[in-house]
Design a protein around this nucleic acid. Sequence first.
DNA 1: TTGAAAGCGCTAACAG
DNA 2: CTGTTAGCGCTTTCAA
Lengths: 333, 333
Amino acid sequence: MATIRDVAKLASVSIATVSHVVNGTRFVEPATSDRVRTAIHELGFEADGIARSLRVRKTSTMALIIPDLTNPFFPELATVIQQEAVRSQYDVVIHSTDVPHGNSEELLGHYLRTIRQKRYDAVIYAETLSATPAVQQLLATGVPVVVIGGTAHPEVDSVYIDDYAAARDVTAWFVAKGHRAIAHISGAAQMSSSEERRRGFLEGLAAAGLPARPDFDVAGTFLRDGGYQAMLQLLACSPRPTAVFAANDLTAIGAILACLDSGLRVPDDIGIVGFDDTMLASTYRPTLTTVYHGQREIGAEVVRLALARIRGEFPEERQKIIVPHRLVERQSA
Amino acid sequence: MATIRDVAKLASVSIATVSHVVNGTRFVEPATSDRVRTAIHELGFEADGIARSLRVRKTSTMALIIPDLTNPFFPELATVIQQEAVRSQYDVVIHSTDVPHGNSEELLGHYLRTIRQKRYDAVIYAETLSATPAVQQLLATGVPVVVIGGTAHPEVDSVYIDDYAAARDVTAWFVAKGHRAIAHISGAAQMSSSEERRRGFLEGLAAAGLPARPDFDVAGTFLRDGGYQAMLQLLACSPRPTAVFAANDLTAIGAILACLDSGLRVPDDIGIVGFDDTMLASTYRPTLTTVYHGQREIGAEVVRLALARIRGEFPEERQKIIVPHRLVERQSA
DNA sequence: TTGAAAGCGCTAACAG
DNA sequence: CTGTTAGCGCTTTCAA
């Protein structure tokens, strides 16, 4: 593979000049730069990004850490992030900690190491179970970190939707539709989004003067099977709920499957709403009433912030960006 | 950020020694290496992978190019690939050419450039529309390339399933179930997997002595909406098909939706089989009868091959690995 | 308008 | 058993 030196020799100029024509970083006599360009073409030269990175201390790549590539929400988010990043000539390497398969702690540790080693310019952290220590560790190394999700971290930039308000809205919407027996299937334990949504649900109930029945507040996992199991529990209650707010779309689909398998009809016998508004929501039948999670806006903001930090902007206050959510009404409730 | 030099100074050894204790690459007196390790710990030193890469000419990163992060097949495949790669301390950066959104040519060009620039050690190419020129271009740079999909490329390693045989199997299976009016919705134009599956379908018909009706052979896109539209066309035929082989799961779901929207029942009025066996297939209702695409096996083989090539193994013959497929019977047919 | 040369942080001969 | 040193391929002063 040709190096800058080969090009310089072939064009009879110094390597400095080659560098400058490649990067357009200072004026070069047209005749000279033509010679250089010809040489580059002839040799099939492509500047070595590694050497360049070593010199300029920047890799033009950022890491994105997500819990699960299998929940469509994350690919959708990742796609937006990639699209945004590519516009600034950035690569993004996606690290899935693969939470559903359970080896996530180990994987996360590995990823954190390679992120340091490979000197990525920034990391975008979409809340995984162990957000706090991981983020702490990352910050200690000095990499710009931006978090997706509302984990209270005064020391990092973050962007997220107001899970609490969204959940309250869903509950209020159920109430407005006449429901009185409203249940919630929460997300994975210890994630702030799970907790916030649950809190919003409870608050929605309270605001409507409805009692919070403990058996209408069951734990899920953010996965389909968790939704299925939880719904089975709910169906065993008597009287059973007429409306269920599921912590995400996967959970909602699991819940619907449990209803179908139990001979109940959605939304006729029981209304179900999900969360995220992934492609599943519009594909599944019944189509899912759900909350749009702002993947487009979150993706855009998050890379905007990351790039700004890389450039060293706004060093003082950390940004907390709350992106609007929106209830999308479809068939399931 | 501490460098190897800082560590050396603090531990009163040469940088060579530090390097060797970090990499375990030659014997070091226990007492010395302890001192070094303490210094490393104290300074929070982490070797600079960029500098290392420059020196050893390897990045421990490979690229994976896929057409679409939004078709669950690819995240599933990517997850396996990541898992396999991580076991050999490799990172994989996923580049989605985002075919459904149409800017793929441009994106692909960009990715190809950055792959060269960033000196990735290998690239795994999951067939996109313009496989041939892209692969050619990649090969010209000397990077090991392994292709997923059966594009006839004598000069690259590839791993894939036998699309032709799989499609023939599906057709034969329909015939065995008594169907005589069997239609096919193909995948995106010009992709070898589309063509092979179509060819297999036609052959299956012929083998059963059934005529190939041109109106039962309609074009899809590998996307849900393509399946929907194609199914609408099929339903306009008279008599209409009693069985439809869709080129992938997304297409099959689109087709089912079209049936439902037209007041037909699946599988009672019409049987539909998909392809890929993504998580959608087991989640959707009716659950999808489909062909398992071997994502686990393909993922494993593909990184095995890539790693072998990186190591410079089997320089002569290119490997063509065909992974077994399997018809998974569920509810939709 | 261009060149010479230092140096980014590391590995790996080579020497002792 | 350990150290010295020459680069890997580039960018960027500084000087001309």
